[in-house]
Design a protein around this nucleic acid. Structure first.
Lengths: 334, 334
DNA sequence: GCAGCATTTGCACACGCTTGCAAAAAGCGA
DNA sequence: TCGCTTTTTGCAAGCGTGTGCAAATGCTGC
């Protein structure tokens, strides 16, 4: 490796004929430098290709500017959309995002948070999985801010951002009934994450309040294939449902495809379908899926504005966001 | 903010009753520590919740462990899949990924690379856009390794990973002809990225070699909506094409949906369609898109193994990877 | 017990930066 | 020009690490 290393503030100082602190102050907003020396420094820096070393700066300031995003299944539409919104917002606020990919194994979120601590991240945002309490306590003790998105957890300290899953589920139940459906079903995965379960419980409860029963079917992970598998189960019952609420859009797409192409069942004429997330594919004309929109931009905005705030935040802060129903063509009427 | 900061090696040393260097050496692989003191240190570290400060370590070692991923349109299926593969591989190699979201504006990749320099990233991987030569030179001069994925550029220094777009385009041309198609079209976006243009040129050239002309239509950005728009153009011509090669799967999905639902044209009976990328949706039964698979895992593996290699790499290294044709149902026969 | 050797340990410096403090410079009114 | 205040500048300490070097310790074989 070329041992000619990065150029340091010292070299810039020499070239500009000023002290090293002058260089430092030039690149520190709010520091006192005369316009003249400032310009000399900037010129020298430009000529030498100098860039402030954020590792060293973070060391001194005890603020790295790094925010750690912890997420699994990045390739998934909803996840990647949220990821994009978050990195965008973070950049706008002068932060930089560190991305950690977790798998399903349970220790992996803990490992990710340890990594965040090692890099002295200012904050961590957790999109998948739920870390052990001992680890989150460690993060908080170290002054690291924590955001949990859609992880229905009641521990103190982190900001919790949740969607009103149960309320949405209730709304879609009445929509189904209004469309003339009577035999409701809920399609879920076996992942059992808080938001998925909240949708399930909310749907079942709302249906019961309307005097209807719900067939619940769960299968595999939360993806297209699972939607097909669930369709296999639901559409071969003696009493076939006439409306199915899928816990995510991916499940819904899989379900619809199986219903139409494998069982030749027409959506929405013979069966109504709804999803959750409003991924891009939901709007594609092969699906036209009626679904709830995750307010990804608002989630990102809430998360970022909370974690860049100067003042210490209230200990137990929860943000509950509303999911708008996007009406398309997978439910009759409307 | 709680001023009780992170715990340092000093404190661990005191608690363990050893010198600070012993702590340092315990966490440095290949350093000489006796098993006894090592255990004392580990116990103390565990008790205190100590984690090596990678900012400081990076400062000393001149190796941060950070790899910068520069990418636009993260929410897109192909991009997010590649992103997932890359972060995964990087983590396996003990690196951590820093994610920078660029927009279309041209300076934004340069800005991203500057950020990479500030954080003293060991390497940067560029998935979107092409930075100014002065910036890449700066990166290289600073000992930062660079990987360009699918950016057909001939500058020296970075590793270039490319797909054999032209060859793939030629293969699909003969597949169309073999399916009995004669009126070929190519659907592209106006993005004009190297790989998109290579596919276009390759397809046109191959068709010409087979004695056929190609209608080329370009519209907007590389997404579903553009596919629909291009369909609008192509399917209202007096002489409607009977085979269309779409530069990406997203374009193909949009095209197919428009053809089927808006123009009531049957795929593949009346028109054959092929795409590129093999995004997940291509395999969904509403599309069954015949397409070329981006070897994302291999791309990631090549990139990561190159940039973690100890020895200096050859100056002008290009990897050309093959895209397998995944045969589904959007082309007759097969 | 002791010479001879290998291993472990502590000291101290370096990495590139920020920042409090005091000295120097600049501005200003008389 | 001179006192005074305000701004700018340089010095030096410190952030938490890694590591070369020399001293100290532990082992082995007599």
């Amino acid at each position: 490796m070329s041992q000619k290393l990065f150029v340091s503030a010292q070299e810039v100082a020499e070239k500009a004929g000023v002290s090293r602190s002058a260089v430092s102050r030039t690149f520190t907003s709010g520091a006192s430098v005369s316009p003249k020396t400032r310009q000399k420094v900037l010129d020298a820096a430009e000529a030498l290709g100098y860039h402030v070393n954020h590792l060293a700066r973070g060391l001194m300031r005890n603020e790295s500017g790094i925010v750690c995003l912890i997420v699994s299944e990045i390739g998934t539409p909803y996840r990647s959309a949220l990821l994009g919104a978050l990195t965008q917002q973070l950049q706008n606020s002068g932060k930089i995002s560190m991305l950690i990919n977790t798998d399903r194994s349970d220790g992996s979120v803990d490992l990710a948070l340890r990594q965040a601590i090692r890099y002295r991240a200012d904050a961590s945002i957790i999109l998948s999985g739920l870390p052990d309490k001992s680890i989150t306590d460690l993060c908080l003790k170290n002054g690291q801010r924590l955001v949990l998105i859609n992880r229905d957890d009641d521990r103190e300290g982190p900001l919790k951002i949740n969607i009103d899953d149960a309320d949405a589920a209730a709304r879609i139940a009445t929509a189904f009934v209004r469309a003339g459906c009577r035999k409701l079903a809920f399609a879920n995965s076996q992942a059992g994450t808080p938001s998925l379960m909240a949708r399930e419980r909310g749907f079942v409860a709302a249906a019961r309040a309307l005097g209807l029963d719900v067939v619940v079917e769960r299968f595999g992970h939360t993806g297209y294939e699972s939607g097909r598998a669930v369709a296999q189960q639901l559409l071969t019952r003696k009493e076939r449902p006439d409306a199915v609420f899928c816990a995510t859009d991916l499940l819904a797409c899989g379900f619809m495809d199986a219903a139409r192409h494998q069982f030749s069942i027409s959506v929405p004429d013979q069966i109504c379908v709804a999803g959750f997330d409003d991924i891009e594919q939901a709007s594609w004309s092969s699906y036209g899926l009626t679904t709830f929109a995750q307010p990804v931009d608002m989630i990102a905005r809430e998360a970022v504005s909370w974690l860049v705030a100067e003042t210490a935040q209230p200990e137990n802060h929860t943000v509950r966001l509303h999911a708008d129903l996007v009406w398309r063509t997978s439910i009759r009427g409307g």
